[in-house]
């Protein structure tokens, strides 16, 4: 991977996502920001996909089980050329192709509809088995939130993946440590994800979810070793200055001025990080 290029992609995706949410005037900023670096690595360095042929059967799949963070994925898809970047300004407007939660029938590049938390991993297992039975290549990546792991269905799916030794699916946990109401730890203690997943029979990796190299390394390792999960240590709101707050940031009202300031800050930080990288 080209670290600088991927960091630039992550910054561009963040900026597009903020523009998109600002056009709507509000939205799920916190959880969208926490997955931008993961999406940048997946779509720049890992996924075997073709924006000109979004439905090719042997493609890699991305299931964003935390469907309310669709805006981050839409920004990524627009960045990759699945559709015109201008469309991002229609988020949540009546008749839009970009609804708040991911919809496979409306948006090119969205593989699976999500929104009712806890269902994406099961859908992913079905795609993985469907590929296997029909001899189709490609890996299925499923992103779940840490709050979302409170849904029991996830653990049904994890047991199933482990029992069947499914090697063409990789689970990614966006462990931003917060859910809508509060810090996850305060709502319902999570205990140690790594040992929980290992107890369920998966290979568990941990990565800094905002370090593109670490994300890439752990995902590529996970892809090689059978049923696996990568637990990404992330920060809710990361990279968007006004959302990097200890208070409520699940969704926020976003003014033009807030967006402009946040976007300028992303550029400043990227410049600074280039200095460190060099």
């Amino acid at each position: 991977m080209d670290k600088k290029a991927t960091m630039k992609a992550a910054a561009d995706i963040r900026k597009l996502c903020i523009e998109e949410l600002a056009a709507a005037g509000y939205g799920h900023i916190g959880g969208s920001m926490s997955i931008c670096d993961i999406l940048a690595v997946l779509y720049t360095d890992i996924l075997d996909i073709d924006p000109k042929d979004p439905k090719k059967p042997d493609r890699d799949y991305l299931v964003l089980s935390k469907g309310h963070c669709g805006p981050a994925l839409y920004a990524t898809l627009a960045y990759k050329g699945y559709f015109d970047i201008e469309k991002l300004k229609t988020l949540n407007q009546g008749g839009t192709m970009l609804p708040s939660h991911c919809d496979r029938l409306k948006t090119p590049g969205i593989d699976v509809s999500t929104g009712s938390l806890g269902q994406g991993l099961s859908l992913g297992t079905g795609v993985a088995i469907g590929k296997k039975i029909q001899g189709l290549g490609g890996t299925v990546f499923v992103i779940v939130g840490d709050g979302e792991l409170q849904e029991g269905q996830n653990w049904e799916a994890v047991q199933f993946i482990a029992h069947r030794s499914l090697s063409n699916i990789v689970l990614i946990v966006d462990n931003n440590k917060r859910q809508l109401d509060n810090y996850t730890e305060n709502i319902c203690k999570t205990f140690d994800y790594k040992s929980k997943f290992e107890a369920f029979g998966l290979h568990a990796f941990e990565a800094d979810g905002h370090d593109v190299c670490d994300i890439y390394d752990k995902l590529t390792q996970a892809m090689k070793c059978g049923p696996s999960v990568v637990i990404m240590d992330t920060e809710k709101g990361h990279g968007c200055k006004f959302a990097e707050i200890p208070g409520f940031n699940h969704y926020m009202v976003i003014s033009r001025e807030m967006a402009d300031e946040a976007i300028a800050e992303i550029d400043r930080r990227l410049e600074a990080s280039y200095g460190q990288t060099d």
């Binding site: 699976v112 269902q119 079905g126 795609v127 469907g130 039975i133 189709l136 269905q153 799916a157």
Partner: peptide, 11 residues
């Protein structure tokens, strides 16, 4: 959910 995912691949 798995059935739905299988169907996505044409099964």
């Amino acid at each position: 959910g798995m059935s739905a995912g299988m169907s996505e691949t044409g099964l």
